[in-house]
Design a protein around this nucleic acid. Structure first.
Lengths: 362, 362
DNA sequence: TGATCATGGTAATGCGGATTATTACTGGGG
DNA sequence: CCCCAGTAATAATCCGCATTACCATGATCA
């Protein structure tokens, strides 16, 4: 390959020193060092004529930064199965990165021997970015801890528990949203509510469950729980955003109906879809039983049901993550934010009419 | 930020020189330089214990490459409007990049003053990548030319005409696909075919039209044309892959029907959708008029019509682009490939029955 | 008239790692 | 006893750019 043009070349052509070229290029002529307008002009002309562009690697090496933001995901970002899931985040991330005049480095390479991605394998390119956004299902605790101890600027999309120190994140306020939905249900006369899901493991599940429980307690109504993920507790990893398609079995319909609750809160929309499909011929929704989903489709499930629930502000989370990240890069800190989720009116939550659903036919 | 660990540090800890560390790290002990097994082991241990990772920028500066592949697009990759369009390409690109053990650099920053993206603005990070994939609608001729003269390894997704030299690309074989569809139509008895579209401007349009014309000529049937992009010739840029939603007006229904053709070939699926929607109450498809689309949805148009046409192998194109790119990076060359498009049987192409469509009611 | 200072620019150095040239030592062969 | 080959590892450079320390010149001032 033809040798690239360097500042040295420009310097020669303009009859000045490499230093001068660098100075001109970076407008560093304010303080101690001065460049005469004529010289400056001459250098600028040569630069323009030759179309010289500084080598980003050398630049980064010398000044320590890059204007490159990294995005790390533990799964492929683009595959069809999770496309719907990741896409909104990426939209937000790209938008904001572009506004910041940065480029985006997707760490697609990092594969540990086991097959799972790891941030810190030998020759990882993480350090090439000024900082990075963590996206995805499972975040390895060790990776997280190392990011912290190494003081690599990063922001996680999705709340994460401490990992040898507080983790900077921007999450969705599942707890509040779940609480709001509980209040709404109670306002409609519901007094016995069932939570269908794991309620543990991933931070996002914990948060939903906590919001549910808090509200139920505060409003002094009955809240019961039906586990929807048999044989999956505790999950091996620590999902924060919510994995596309990791849960196991469908929720036990009889168990849900057997609680005598008048409204069911589903942790995962996919479970709600399965439940409704199965229960449709036995009960009427929402007449016999109201159904609320805690978050919009995480797993790619198609359904024409207009569930009552809330929208996870994924795009905003992506945007905000980048905003926070640039802040961290500039001035450090450990921002932790939860973004509000819009409630979705839907049509599966109605006022209590009769005495609740029929008990299972058994 | 805590200063990062350097080879110098490792060297000190292991009681050797920086050179030795580098040598061990890169397994460069085959030829002239030798490292004893004990020393090597000692260095390796320190590296493992400290978790040292080489600075990618320094590495790139010294050895000239990075294992980073760039992706340049003239529009945002992720925005909702073009999501469906770009996504398959990106899936392929990511897959293949991951297999190659590379990372992906998305050039989201490059914004010219005018607002459009440019590859070569001042402080572009293009050179950080070992090479790059060009994706998208319009590719600036100057950018293209410069990529060539600068000898930056790149591969365009979508055929491109020469720009001061041959352009490496992987495109879709629109010409063959269009020709095959023409043959199929003729086999079903069609003798008068109309091409609806621009047939010029973007390479992809030119190719479709050429395929249509060649086949029509060879089979000695009548081929006519109806321009579907009023006031848009010639297009300002040179789209190669196909732009999401750039064309202007809908095709003129009367003009199409007025040709007396028994089958219409639509350059853009979106036009076909619009046409069918408008014509539905006047003619029956395919009884009165067969409709063929030359390529799957480019613009994000939802339609439940099962058009006869072909599938653009976007994911494969993405994959292949990366494969070719790594080849170019390794050993240069100017690969140019067209990938076949699968025909889609569909239900809008039928045998000729009557005497063609009724003329417009006018 | 020599000290002081503003002006305009350059030489030198560092960033972290790869590579090449060179050194230090040991054992054999002549 | 000296030279050479082989082994093990290091010093010195370079990659391209940013930055700091330093120098040369002419004007100003006491």
């Amino acid at each position: 390959m033809a040798r690239r043009l360097t500042q040295q070349d420009i310097a020669r052509m303009a009859g000045v020193s490499q230093t001068t070229v660098s100075l001109v290029l970076n407008n560093r002529a304010e303080g101690a060092v001065r460049i005469s307008p004529e010289t400056r002009e001459r250098v600028i002309r040569v630069i323009r004529e030759t179309g010289y562009i500084a080598d980003p690697a050398a630049r980064r090496l010398a000044e320590g930064r890059n204007r490159i933001l990294g995005v790390f995901t533990y799964e492929a970002v683009f595959p069809a199965t999770s496309a719907d899931f990741y896409h909104p985040f990426l939209v937000g991330i790209e938008e904001c990165t572009e506004e910041a005049g940065c480029d985006l480095l997707l760490f697609t390479s990092a594969r540990a021997s086991g097959g799972r991605r790891r941030i810190f394998d030998q020759d990882s390119r993480v350090r090439l970015a000024d900082g990075c956004v963590l996206l995805g299902h499972t975040v390895d605790r060790d990776d997280l801890a190392r990011l912290i101890t190494d003081q690599i600027p990063f922001v996680s999309v999705g709340r994460r528990e401490d990992a040898g120190g507080p983790v900077p994140y921007v999450g969705a306020d599942y707890a509040s949203a779940a609480g709001a939905l509980v209040r709404r249900a109670v306002a409609l006369g519901h007094r016995r509510l069932v939570y269908v899901g794991a309620g543990a493991g991933a931070e996002s599940w914990v948060d939903r469950h906590r919001g549910f429980l808090d509200a139920v307690t505060r409003l002094d109504v009955e809240g019961v729980m039906v586990n929807a993920t048999p044989g999956a507790d505790p999950p091996p990893g620590t999902p924060g955003v919510g994995p596309p398609g990791v849960q196991g079995g469908a929720p036990d319909m009889d168990a849900v109906l057997g609680t005598g609750a008048t409204v069911a809160f589903f942790e995962e929309q996919a479970d709600a879809v399965a439940f409704v499909a199965a229960a449709r011929h036995r009960i009427s929704i929402p007449a016999d039983l109201s159904v609320v989903t805690l978050g919009s489709a995480t797993r790619p499930v198609r359904s024409d049901i207009d569930f009552t629930g809330f929208r996870i502000p994924r795009r905003e989370m992506g945007r905000r993550a980048v905003e926070l990240l640039t802040g961290v890069i500039e001035s450090g800190g450990t921002p932790q934010e939860l973004l509000p989720c819009d409630l979705i009116e839907g049509s599966t939550l109605a006022a209590v009419t009769g005495g609740g659903p029929r008990p299972p036919a058994s």
